[in-house]
Design a protein around this nucleic acid. Sequence first.
DNA 1: CAATCGTGGATATCTTGTGTCCACAATTGA
DNA 2: TCAATTGTGGACACAAGATATCCACGATTG
Lengths: 153, 153
Amino acid sequence: MQLSKTFDYAIRSLVYLAKLPEGQAAELRAISLSQSVPMSYLAKVMRHLVRGGLVTSILGRDGGYSLRKKPRDITLLQVYEIMEGELRFVECMENDRNCSLFNGCTQAPVWRRLRQAVESIFRETTLADLLPKNAGESVPTPIKESGYARAGA
Amino acid sequence: MQLSKTFDYAIRSLVYLAKLPEGQAAELRAISLSQSVPMSYLAKVMRHLVRGGLVTSILGRDGGYSLRKKPRDITLLQVYEIMEGELRFVECMENDRNCSLFNGCTQAPVWRRLRQAVESIFRETTLADLLPKNAGESVPTPIKESGYARAGA
DNA sequence: CAATCGTGGATATCTTGTGTCCACAATTGA
DNA sequence: TCAATTGTGGACACAAGATATCCACGATTG
């Protein structure tokens, strides 16, 4: 019943990008430092987001990442499905190979209700909802300079 | 975002007990066979339920387990908390050691909303809701005799 | 050409869920 | 009283998945 760090990393990175001035890109190291997320791992996360169509990557010098949509148009459900795949709570969410054999799977309706609840929250929450209200200040400062942002090149 | 098998085992075992005639006990092997759950692992699950106060265990010969409350009085939330502890989706659900430092943890409200949703579903669903409506037949039959119910003594 | 930056994938590590095993205590019936 | 049965407790083993690391490579720009 835990959300993965990967999912959390993805969200926070997207929020970071959303805070940038329109059209501006941020490079991996900057995101990594600001979130205290290992750079080489963040790279993998970002690749998912790129393939998922939420983020554009710019190769080469002065490259980086930038949002491909308005924050209002990026829902947590999209992010979740890109990072984790379809939302499910048990193995046999739809197909009943095992459970229905025993008791007609009386808990299946509960899992469905559960998914609907979570799904609708995820669908209704967009990146825009995660932007700090009172913040015009552009970029948050990292806590520690050391540790991260070292590998990869 | 997955529920553990352990939680599922617990629920199914409780449902099994709930189906028994009032006051009757079932032994470990019977539950294990009916659910195709490894007996030695089920033992551990049952211990949790005993300590959690949902189930009574009877030692010695002709021992077994039986429900300690009416199915209507056992909620999924109780079962969850007994098996998994407090319901949480991220590390820092209440205490904010890390996230608030960066962005005031704008996602925390989302996680809270999420928890409330799940929690209320769990709280409103009782064992009674998981009993098959049309079933007077006492005990479901196992699929395969082999494999489980062998270890332990 | 050289420096920068993201890509891709193989690999390593760590954690946790899941499962196993065995000695032991309690209970009951012969 | 003895032996069989049944749950208890904890140590241990195993597997899978999340998390992290590394390195060779392609793209881009000055």
